[in-house]
Design a protein around this nucleic acid. Structure first.
Ligand SMILES: NC(=O)c1ccc[n+]([C@@H]2O[C@H](COP(=O)([O-])OP(=O)(O)OC[C@H]3O[C@@H](n4cnc5c(N)ncnc54)[C@H](O)[C@@H]3O)[C@@H](O)[C@H]2O)c1
Ligand SMILES: NC(=O)c1ccc[n+]([C@@H]2O[C@H](COP(=O)([O-])OP(=O)(O)OC[C@H]3O[C@@H](n4cnc5c(N)ncnc54)[C@H](O)[C@@H]3O)[C@@H](O)[C@H]2O)c1
Lengths: 207, 207
DNA sequence: TATTCCCTGTTAAAAATTTAACAATAATTC
DNA sequence: GAATTATTGTTAAATTTTTAACAGGGAATA
């Protein structure tokens, strides 16, 4: 697969989620406009994305849901699946672990880390929590390559450094502390306040 | 203020966060390239956004941090501030309430709702949790206009209906269940798995 | 006071993304 | 079986977003 547009990659993940959803409802085929409706986008965009990943539907039958799910998997999943660690087992860290636990995703959280002795050496939703001092050791042993940071903001830069040092390739930062990492590490940051303020802005400016 | 580009609105929120951060470090002025670095974007983009909101810096001094924070506030905050409710006081709901509590934001979570008697009629980080049956009543009384949904996915459509019925103007849906609402209600959806799969994809395809 | 330098503001160009338009064609209707 | 309808796939156009280019001007230097 050539280089897909960034936005298409994001949508593939959402398509799959919706498709799985429909599958459990007993649907086997879906039209571009149905899928579009579920994602609040246009049917053209759906068809275009599907074209870009090289899939074809059947005229008047739409797309085969199972086939599409498989194909999307081939594109966005890695063969071995990715192995993930969560750093900081507070409210947010726990929410994520429970969430991914109940999904049968290829993305597996295989370890978590904290410094608080109340949290360490316990297991949450099947994920063991190690002391952060053991990061390098466990990252290596468990072949972890993505880290999710959910610690207090103050300690985020140090944590990122340690993650990079330990050889991680991607970081998902959920704290409000902006981060800098070397170019070869893929960084994604999310702050709820941005989403919230966006909603607030458009609510305020709606016609 | 005319219609700002969508992306600019998103970045304003991030600018403000970083600017506040710098302010607490004692900085009073900031250059476009410094701000750009904090957000992993280009200085041109920063200058362009600032131009669009009609602010001007001083040559060789950069932008006045306090002034910018104020101006951004004028644009993205509403005068009275927005009043927000969280539906579903599980891990995620609690994480958000604690998070917004410690920020002195204009966005105030003023109520939460649940159906589980273990959760209702308690107060979390200063936010009271009501039974969901009282939604309409409390929304009205507290003048709530944004709802954040963090319940199990199954019940999300009903909850959204009730929120709309109660007169809410914006919904932030954190569950993996895609939602449909009338056009006049602004809807933002976020699913962690999308972020995670994006990271996974780009980690896999990095050069 | 002249010169150099740094940083802003803005217009123009480029790139990315979305939307439109429509041809092709299988299924359905008459 | 001809006409109509529904839906895909794709190319082209439009829009949005980002990046480049550079003029302007205050501060620093000399
Ligand atoms: N982006 C969002 O949408 C969003 C929403 C809510 C909270 N947050 C942020 O996410 C972070 C976590 O929020 P929370 O409510 O889960 O906080 P929390 O206090 O419940 O959890 C933080 C955890 O990190 C651990 N920790 C502290 N220092 C550590 C270290 N050096 N190494 C490893 N672990 C360490 C703590 O022991 C604690 O268990 C905060 O930074 C918060 O501001 C973000
Ligand atoms: N988008 C993300 O990034 C992300 C991350 C983690 C979890 N999630 C999702 O967020 C949701 C909440 O996750 P969680 O870990 O906090 O779950 P949780 O089970 O801890 O919390 C859900 C809460 O909702 C309450 N609830 C159930 N039915 C309700 C109803 N009809 N009205 C009001 N409240 C009701 C429950 O009593 C419970 O307190 C889930 O849908 C989960 O899949 C999303």
């Amino acid at each position: 697969m050539k280089n897909l547009p960034d936005k298409t990659v994001e949508r593939l993940s959402q398509y799959r989620r919706s498709l799985n959803n429909q599958l459990t409802k007993g649907k086997t085929n879906i039209f571009s406009h149905e899928l579009a409706h579920l994602l609040h986008i246009t049917p053209v965009q759906v068809r275009r994305d599907i074209m870009l990943i090289g899939y074809s539907g059947t005229l008047r039958k739409g797309y085969d849901i199972k086939e599409m799910i498989n194909l999307i998997g081939k594109i966005i999943d890695t063969d071995e699946g990715q192995r993930i660690a969560v750093i900081g087992m507070g409210n947010l860290g726990k929410a994520f672990i429970h969430y991914l636990h109940e999904k049968g995703s290829k993305l597996k959280i295989v370890a978590s880390f904290d410094v608080n002795p109340d949290k360490t050496d316990k297991t949450y939703a099947g994920v063991h929590c190690y002391h952060f001092d053991r990061l390098a050791e466990i990252v290596k042993k468990e072949e972890i390559n993505i880290g999710i940071i959910t610690t207090p903001p103050e300690v985020v830069p140090q944590i990122a450094d340690k993650l990079v040092e330990a050889g991680i390739n991607g970081i998902l930062n959920y704290t409000p502390k902006p981060l800098s990492v070397p170019d070869e590490v893929y960084l994604e940051e999310y702050d709820m306040i941005t989403s919230l303020e966006k909603v607030a802005y458009f609510v305020k400016h709606r016609d």
